[in-house]
Amino acid sequence: MTFNLGLTGSIGMGKSTTAGLFATAGCAVWDADAAVHRLYAKGGAAVSAMQAWFPDAIKQGQVDRMRLKELIAKDPQVLSRIESIVHPLVAQDRDDFRRAAKSDILVFDIPLLFEIGGNQEMDAVACVMIDAETQQSRVLARGTMSVEQFLQIRHKQLPIEDKIARSDYVIVTDTLDHARAQVARILADVREKIANA
């Protein structure tokens, strides 16, 4: 039996680091953001479709994400067109990963897991969380966005309280050691479920 574990959480809550802990523990990890990067890269499956709709967003044979952000800022309708192109390709990438993976536990790192209904494909969901103050300081420390941009992204995401309420497991990412211990407990619980299935 293969167990599908969704991993989610809001921006800056430590999801990527936690995904790395699952990978280190022997799980196969699929990363939604990395899948989009592959699709947008030179030769990626999304490039030709994006070129047809947004020719000025293609630079040196790949999709320019900054240009897409500018286009979305000018016209909110652009986002739904991008999603209609990218979401089916991301789903295909996820299915390909699922078929090829050899681990007993597959972890799906998907920021908008609940928002897109992806939780229905999972056997369980783990949500990472940290307090709002730490979340904001982590994001701003990256130096890639303003407070306004951060708040805009957070506003689009389901409130963390709702994500926690709908999750089977919660991982508090206050320290790496604490997160690692929680990951180990989740894996022990999941492996027990697999053994008893």
Rank of each mutant, 00 (worst) to 15 (best):
S103G: 05
R98P: 00
I110R: 04
D95G: 04
V190D: 07
E121H: 10
A91H: 12
H178Y: 11
L89P: 14
A25F: 11
I105F: 03
V47P: 05
L5D: 01
Q157K: 04
D75H: 03
D109W: 01
A91P: 03
E161T: 14
I194Y: 04
K102P: 00
K156E: 10
L151W: 09
L39P: 08
K156Q: 15
R38G: 07
K69I: 00
Q135M: 10
A49F: 03
I110W: 03
L21G: 12
R65G: 13
G9E: 01
G6C: 02
K74Q: 13
S80G: 12
A141H: 12
A46V: 05
D95R: 13
A57P: 01
G117P: 03
D93S: 14
I160Y: 01
A101I: 03
L158T: 06
A197R: 14
F54T: 06
E115K: 02
E192K: 14
K163H: 08
I171C: 04
R191E: 15
I105H: 01
D96I: 11
L7P: 00
I72D: 03
A25D: 08
D177Y: 00
V147I: 15
D189R: 01
S103P: 05
S48I: 07
E133P: 07
K193G: 04
L140V: 09
S146P: 04
I194H: 05
F22D: 03
N119F: 06
G14K: 01
K42I: 06
G43D: 09
R99V: 10
A91W: 08
G6V: 05
A35G: 09
I85M: 06
D174F: 06
A197F: 15
I186C: 11
M13A: 07
L71V: 03
I110N: 01
A188V: 08
R154S: 06
T144Y: 08
I186L: 14
A101G: 07
D95M: 10
T24N: 10
D123G: 06
I72F: 11
Y40I: 09
D177R: 12
A100W: 00
D174Q: 15
A181Y: 06
V125F: 10
H87G: 05
E148F: 04
V128T: 13
S103A: 14
M50T: 09
A188W: 12
Y40Q: 08
H37E: 13
V78Y: 00
R81K: 15
S146T: 15
D75E: 13
A179P: 03
A181C: 09
N196W: 14
R98G: 00
D96P: 00
V190S: 10
S48N: 08
K102E: 12
K193N: 08
G6F: 02
I164W: 02
I130P: 03
W53N: 15
Q92V: 08
K59W: 06
A126P: 09
T134E: 15
A197D: 13
K163G: 01
P111W: 02
M145D: 02
Y40V: 09
A52C: 10
Q136C: 08
I82M: 14
A49K: 09
M50C: 07
I153V: 15
P76G: 04
M1I: 11
D109G: 00
C27P: 12
W53R: 13
Q60A: 15
A184V: 09
R180M: 06
E133G: 08
A28E: 13
E115R: 07
R166T: 05
C127D: 01
L89M: 13
K163Q: 04
L79K: 12
R138K: 00
